[in-house]
Amino acid sequence: MTKMAKTPSTNAIEKGTIAASVARYKIDVIRKVGLDEKRLCYSVGLNMAELDDPNGRIPKAVLFRLFSLASAESKMISLGLQCDEYLDAGFLGIVGYTMMSCSNFKQALQRLERYSVLLDDELEVWAEREEGNLRLSARIGSVERYPFDYMMAGIKGFLSFCKVLLGSYPITHELNVMYGRPNSYEEGTLFFKNINFEMPFFSILFDADTLSKPLRSFNPNLDRVHVDIAEAMLENFNSVKSVDYIRQLISESLSGRALSLGDLAIRLSVSKRTLQRELEVQETSFKEILDDVRKQQAKQYLLYSKKNMKEISWSLGFVEISSFYRASHQWFGMTPKQYRFKHQEL
């Protein structure tokens, strides 16, 4: 088997953000292997000043392009596997600090499970008992979008952070990865004797004895502060995600057929009723969001594109063009052709 391509699929929808602290660490990897990170960041449109914002979010699509360029320039077999010595304790931001200040390794992994979305808004982490040991699993969506070096840097960085917590690498029994088997050198740098490839999600099986190990950085006073900050950030993130992220998903999926409430609930891994309740808290509804996204896109198409009415209707996810005309009357009080003519005249 060969490993997956080092460039993300051009057909995949580029979406999602990552914490600025994690992005800074990944860019440090590029710099410390001898590449010109400033030039590469400039070439993909990344303002490096944004990496210093403790609450900043960096579009992953930009980082994917950056790692693809860096991989092409690098003389190394895999620059993503060269990063363990470049890690600093703050690379996970507030999530890392909540892990560092808690009492033992098991609790640290539970903190990662709870706050993972603050690191990567597409990342889902969960922990399960397995014959007395603990399996930590992670799902990131479509792996084809993620450059190989980008993901390897993440795996190696996480293991190195575990070493920061414990003083030595944790005892592990198995690693599952979503990619195909790499070459023998790359496989040997992952610290695992038992590695399974092309799995449905990433996971690491930690030994039971490691879970109870106390952390050198445990500090109950700082821990309360860190958790309060993380909880506030999580509440704010989920509140924003409930509307803005849903708008983004709907906008990206309109063409041909709009997402239904059920489709959206599946994408967000929640029940329809849970999704409805979350939107009610935000004093809105799926129908209102869908209607407003269509209205705003309709304005853009009518004023700034040369698409005809049938093409615009399809782009807005209407099955019948008559539905587009009815919606236009509700939005603008006139047909879409009249709206285009009126504003083009102005």
Score class of each variant (00 low, 15 high):
7 T>S: 14
7 T>Q: 13
8 P>L: 02
22 V>M: 12
25 Y>A: 09
26 K>R: 06
26 K>I: 09
31 R>Q: 15
32 K>S: 13
35 L>R: 09
36 D>C: 09
38 K>T: 10
40 L>I: 11
41 C>Q: 01
42 Y>K: 15
42 Y>F: 14
47 N>M: 04
52 D>A: 10
53 D>I: 05
56 G>R: 07
56 G>C: 03
57 R>I: 01
57 R>Q: 15
59 P>L: 06
60 K>P: 04
61 A>V: 02
62 V>P: 00
63 L>P: 13
68 S>G: 13
72 A>L: 07
78 S>H: 00
80 G>N: 04
82 Q>H: 12
86 Y>C: 05
96 G>A: 06
106 K>I: 01
108 A>I: 02
115 Y>S: 10
125 V>E: 08
128 E>A: 12
133 N>M: 10
135 R>E: 14
138 A>D: 08
142 S>I: 00
143 V>C: 05
146 Y>E: 11
149 D>T: 13
151 M>A: 12
155 I>T: 09
172 T>Y: 06
175 L>I: 10
180 G>E: 06
183 N>Q: 05
184 S>I: 11
186 E>F: 00
190 L>R: 06
200 P>F: 02
201 F>C: 09
202 F>S: 08
207 D>A: 10
211 L>Q: 04
211 L>V: 04
216 R>V: 10
225 V>N: 01
225 V>Q: 07
226 H>A: 14
231 E>K: 11
232 A>R: 10
246 I>S: 14
246 I>E: 07
264 L>Y: 02
270 V>C: 15
275 L>Y: 02
278 E>G: 06
283 E>S: 12
287 K>D: 13
297 Q>E: 13
299 K>G: 00
303 L>R: 05
308 N>C: 02
315 S>I: 00
324 F>Q: 01
334 M>E: 12
335 T>S: 15
337 K>H: 10
340 R>C: 09
345 E>Q: 14
346 L>M: 06
